[in-house]
Amino acid sequence: MSFLYLLAMQVQPAAREAMDPKVLIAAFYVFALAAFLGYQVISRVPPLLHTPLMSATNAISGISLVGSLVIAGAYEFDAHKLMAGGVDSHPSWATLMGFIAVFTATVNVVSGFGLTDRMLKMFRKDIKKKEAQK
């Protein structure tokens, strides 16, 4: 039994205990710098490409997938416990929510990049007029 208990302990992911203040401050630095850089980079995108831009940033923010993956894979899913409710059902609920999040984020990544590329392919400098007519 103690073996099972140990196994269960290992399965429990590290609790999100109080973030180290240094880590927290670093996170704010990252946020501030990303905001500044984002402003600089994105204000240079011409209106011509605003639709692909929206599609691309959407795909990129699909990186939230990495958070969803961890949630979908960290806990054991047990349909009986899910039905039974209570605290025991929580890991199974988390897995389900993680699964949906993995699904929607993946849709965004794949369709976002796919559509961005499809759109960008269409923007051409010079199309021979005759050729386009065909």
Binding site: A27, V30, F31, A34, A35, L37, G38, Y39, V41, I42, L53, M54, T57, N58, I60, S61, I63, S64, V66, G67
Partner: peptide, 12 residues
């Protein structure tokens, strides 16, 4: 990376 990507998206 979530902070960076999310912020880029948010600012865009």
């Amino acid at each position: 990376i979530l902070i960076i990507a999310g912020t880029l998206d948010g600012f865009s």
